[in-house]
Design a protein around this nucleic acid. Structure first.
Length: 421
RNA sequence: GGAGGCGUGGCAGAGUGGUCUAUCGCACUUGUCUUGAAAACAAGAGUACCGCAAGGUACCGUGAGUUCGAAUCUCACCGCCUCCGCCA
């Protein structure tokens, strides 16, 4: 959510931002609605002031005739207030609906573009893996090593179902343990959040009202979160923090549920696109300052880059174009890992910052050293998703004999082994 | 799931329809006094929105309602606590 004052004072900037994100929204209409809202608000408040004043007088007067007369007068004013309040309510509802749809303004450095095709590579690390044998894809490799069972997964869950088994399951535990150590060492507090969340939280992060189709809902109208970003950002909702607790850095670990509505034809096989997975997520709340946001944005993205480097998987980092940004995002980097059999990079991480877009919706504020109140800034970035990371891990590290070399840093969690065979 | 109780400002805790726009206390800020501190005394201090300002409006868990007037009455919901039941 943007500040309506900001929108009024920077109409062109907001309009250009929406255009860059390819979001169709009528800011002029919003502002004229706001004019109407303010005018009606003033009318209602003036009438209430009159009623309050006279009502106070009524209790003071002794003369019963005068009292009756004043009560009659106020009864008439009350009708007037009711009509104006109804109008105010309607205008405000319409106003709020549109306010929730106004996208945050992307940063100057965000490239133009409509889809992820137009994201721009800003960094590439590692040599794309070459094989002197017939390389297999992750499905073949993992099936042969009994690390995964898609057929039975489908029997239990349906489309996109999977069982991770044996070394497949163990590798996940290894990655989680290693990631926990890696990110804790960088000042992130581990958190296992609730994943069944009130819908309010999805409005807070900006996932709603847009992406209704992507969420599983319970019969109580709660949502299953698709990322720990949702409960972790909402965690301090409605709170006033002391500035000296900032920055708050959390490493969330949670299951993630995604309906993948509208992507039925995409990635129909394997572990790239599944309905449920696990993810470690970096979430940061920091002081309300653009430079600070940028600093942490670079930092959390670099954390994930260095994590991938420590595993030794070739990757590239892209800066996402305007059309590939979420409603609240100011700027986003994706990290994509090399998938040899597909001959392309696949996304495994997204790092974004939001300024106060999310914290304004959640009501996350802090008092600075002077006692002044501010909305905090929020950021988040994937730390590591499982099992998606396994796709590029087993494909890049596969051996001629069908085995898979275990990255050095994970071996101590895998019984000291060098290979999965 | 059943029964009962409770939600008031940073904390604690009064207030069951109007008696000045939430009492008193603790903590907080400033001042007086003091070499300094403590104590005492005095004053001040919440959040959001509207307004150039003066000022106004809203906020006693949330939302509706009754009333000229609601923290107070009515209804619904949410949360917490206690006991019982069930349960990893």
């Amino acid at each position: 959510m943007l500040d309506i004052k900001f929108i009024r004072e920077n109409k062109e900037i907001v309009e250009m931002g929406a255009k860059k994100k390819h979001v169709d929204i009528d800011i002029s209409h919003l502002i004229s609605l706001d004019d109407d809202r303010l005018k009606t608000l003033k009318e209602v408040e003036d009438l209430r002031a009159e009623v309050n004043k006279v009502s106070n007088d009524i209790s003071r007067h002794q003369d019963p005739n005068l009292k009756t007369q004043l009560i009659e007068e106020m009864r008439a004013v009350k009708e007037d207030i009711k009509a104006k309040e109804d109008k105010l309510k309607n205008v405000t509802e319409e106003w709020q609906k549109i306010m929730l749809q106004v996208p945050n303004v992307p940063d100057m450095s965000v490239p133009e573009g409509f889809t992820d095709e137009e994201n721009q590579e800003i960094k590439a690390w590692g040599e794309k893996t070459n094989f002197d044998f017939d390389a297999k894809d992750h499905i073949e490799i993992m099936n042969a090593l009994r690390m995964v069972d898609f057929e039975r997964g489908t029997k239990i869950h349906g489309f996109r179902g999977y069982f991770l088994m044996n070394d497949g399951a163990m590798l996940c535990f290894a990655i989680w343990n290693y990631a926990m150590e890696f990110f804790s060492a960088r000042g992130f507090s581990p958190v296992i959040p609730p994943v069944i969340v009130k819908k309010q939280n999805l409005y807070g992060t900006g996932h709603l009202p847009g992406d209704v189709e992507d969420y599983y809902m319970t019969q109580d109208e709660d949502a299953l979160a698709g990322t720990a970003e949702i409960p972790l950002t909402g965690m301090h909702g409605g709170e006033i923090l002391n500035h000296n607790v900032l920055p708050l850095k959390y490493l969330g670990f949670s299951p993630c549920f995604r309906r993948e509505a509208g992507s039925h034809g995409k990635d129909v096989k394997g572990l790239i696109r599944v309905h449920e997975f696990y993810k470690m997520e970096q979430v940061v709340l920091c002081e309300a300052n653009h430079e600070t946001s940028v600093k942490f944005h670079e930092e959390i993205n670099k954390n994930t880059e260095e994590f991938i480097e420590s595993l030794g998987i070739p990757y590239r980092t892209v800066i996402n174009c305007g059309g590939d940004l979420g409603l609240g995002q100011v700027k986003k980097y994706d990290i994509e890992l090399w998938v040899p059999k597909e001959g392309k990079y696949r996304e495994i991480s997204s790092a974004s910052y939001f300024h106060d877009f999310q914290t304004r919706r959640f009501g996350i504020r802090y008092k600075d050293a002077e006692g002044k109140m501010h909305y905090a800034h929020s950021l988040n970035s994937t730390a590591i998703p499982t099992p998606r990371i396994l796709v590029s891990m087993v494909e890049n590290f596969q051996q001629a004999d069908g085995g898979v070399r275990i990255p050095e840093v994970l071996r101590k969690y895998m019984g000291g082994r060098e290979f999965i065979k």
